[in-house]
């Protein structure tokens, strides 16, 4: 019969139409208020597509989501070097950046002019950035990461779209919050929560870093005994001074770790599944979501 196909098609659209109301009745008004229901609506078992009421509800972005890059710095409550850059201005991100939107000024020592492993300035032109994530992928120091904040609309691009170092810097704890599993994986691969260079210095000093686990993800590092100020002499080689400072730091950390050591092994023994720092490929502990969430909430409460 002519028209049967059209009727069949209309039946499908009608079913879609009715289903929306069936759904409304099922959730009887709670549909747009409760988070569980939002989860169900956007979930895998839900039929069809449900609208995300954007400014009120936001679809959480996954961990690997990449928008614009940011630079990792030490937490503000870091006992030794709060706010220190992780970036060593090695320039790999600038090299692998396909549209070449990363500009780095390598820091140099004011007295000798020799390069120091710290960026003096760091710019990302987000009008050019293609959000590809290569910078984060190939950074050997885990110092540049892809941010999840996509709400960047602005009224003026000349003043807003070149992100400088101050804007780009975000504490490590921010990265841990937006991408917990990745942050942990990386930390396990590095062998500690600290910057790879610091870890190297610690290793040199014969000190083992704290093994990264879910449990110590947000615990504050123990404040170290105040490091001795490096001997000040005008004619000293700054590179040497830098080395000295690093050593002092490591020593301080060692001291601190020694002080806190007795409690640590017992905790580690209980946690049998904690991965060893030397084996980054070892099975990582099962992600306990609830505990993790609880921790984040706790931490937020502490902050606020």
């Amino acid at each position: 019969m002519y028209g049967q196909g059209i009727l069949k098609g209309l039946w499908v659209t009608f079913r879609h139409f009715v289903n929306t109301y069936v759904d409304d009745i099922r959730y009887a008004g709670r549909k747009y208020l409760r988070q569980e229901n939002f989860a169900i609506r956007q979930g895998l078992k839900a039929q069809g597509a449900f609208t995300v009421q954007y400014p009120d509800e936001k679809l959480a972005v996954p961990e690997r989501f990449r928008f614009t890059p940011f630079l990792v710095v030490n937490d503000p409550d870091h006992p030794e070097a709060p706010g220190d850059d992780w970036c060593t201005s090695c320039g790999i991100c600038a090299k692998v950046c396909p549209p070449q939107c990363i500009w780095i000024v390598r820091g140099s020592d004011p007295t000798t002019g020799r390069p120091v492993p710290q960026p003096e300035a760091f710019f990302i032109d987000i009008d050019i950035c293609m959000n590809c994530g290569f910078c984060a992928e190939f950074c050997p120091f885990d110092a540049i990461k892809m941010d999840h904040n996509y709400e960047l609309a602005s009224y003026d691009r000349t003043s807003h779209h070149i992100h400088d170092k101050q804007y780009l810097s975000r504490p490590l704890s921010y990265w841990k919050t937006i991408a917990p599993t990745t942050a942990l994986e990386e930390a396990v691969a590095r062998g500690g929560w600290e910057h790879p260079d610091v870890l190297k210095a610690m290793k040199k000093a014969g000190q083992t870093a704290v093994t990264p686990t879910w449990d110590n993800m947000f615990t504050k590092p123990e404040p170290a005994a105040k490091p001795l100020p490096p001997a000040e002499s005008a004619d000293e080689d700054p590179a040497k001074a830098e080395r000295l400072r690093k050593r002092e730091e490591a020593l301080a950390r060692k001291r601190a770790a020694e002080a806190g050591e007795p409690a640590q092994p017992a905790a580690a023994a209980v946690e049998a599944s904690a991965p060893a720092p030397a084996a980054p490929t070892a099975d990582k502990p099962k992600f306990d979501k609830q505990a993790m969430l609880e921790k984040i909430r706790q931490r937020k409460a502490d902050k606020g």
């Binding site: 503000p76 960047l152 003043s159 807003h160 400088d164 975000r170 921010y174 919050t177």
Partner: peptide, 22 residues
């Protein structure tokens, strides 16, 4: 004042939300 918001759930960078003009 522009609308560039601070990153959500971001404790420390809130005061740096507006990027400094180059």
């Amino acid at each position: 004042p522009t609308e560039t918001p601070a990153p959500a759930a971001e404790p420390a960078a809130g005061d740096q939300a507006a990027p400094k003009k180059f």
